[in-house]
């Protein structure tokens, strides 16, 4: 039986793959969205910035910022889930990802439920892939600010999966 892979090597491989995936989406960078990872679990983080405000009187985050945050979180989660097995098996090498970026899922539809005003502070989101077939996927996303149980928005989206070489 072979020895398990050293932990730092595992972390480096996963972190590099995630960073390459996220860095390739200019709009995620424009909004300032970053991802935190624990094992295969991702949390999208939207650090507060003045430009994200929609209602300066309250003040509140723009509904479009919230929709964008949730859609970015959904697409990255779905792509991450799609690549995970290839990454873990060694078929996909993160060092080679930047030069040969994987095709991303395409949004078919996206429905956002605005539950509470988005406060002028950091936001967090976690997406769950409820169904992922060869062609279509359904993803649910929840977003919160101060309290995990008090969501300020949630969304469901359907996506067209890219055709992968190995089918």
């Amino acid at each position: 039986m072979s020895r398990p892979e050293p932990v730092q090597q595992v972390k480096h491989r996963r972190d590099l793959a995630l960073k390459t995936l996220v860095d390739a989406v200019p709009y995620a960078g424009f909004l300032g969205i970053v991802f935190e990872r624990h094992g295969d679990e991702l949390t999208a983080v939207l650090p507060y910035d003045d430009k994200l405000i929609g209602n300066p009187v309250l003040p509140a985050l723009h509904g479009g910022v919230i929709a964008s945050f949730l859609e970015v979180a959904a697409i990255i989660e779905l792509s991450w889930a799609m690549l995970w097995d290839e990454l873990e098996s060694g078929r996909l090498r993160p060092e080679e990802m930047a030069a040969n970026l994987p095709r991303l899922p395409k949004t078919i539809d996206f429905t956002v439920d605005y539950l509470r005003t988005g406060l002028p502070r950091d936001g967090y989101a976690r997406a769950r892939v409820n169904r992922s077939g060869r062609r279509y996927a359904s993803v649910h996303v929840e977003a919160w600010q101060d309290n995990r149980a008090r969501l300020f928005a949630q969304a469901t989206g359907h996506f067209l999966m890219p055709q992968r070489a190995d089918g």
């Binding site: 390739a24 200019p26 995620a28 960078g29 509904g63 479009g64 964008s68 949730l70 859609e71």
Partner: peptide, 27 residues
């Protein structure tokens, strides 16, 4: 705008930016 691109392989604007436009226009 290149900063609003969602898929670098195609240069297509991110759906979220289109959502933001639709939301603002609806409001």
């Amino acid at each position: 705008d290149a900063r609003f691109v969602g898929d670098p392989a195609t240069g297509v604007i991110h759906g979220g930016a289109v959502s933001a436009l639709m939301d603002t226009c609806g409001g």
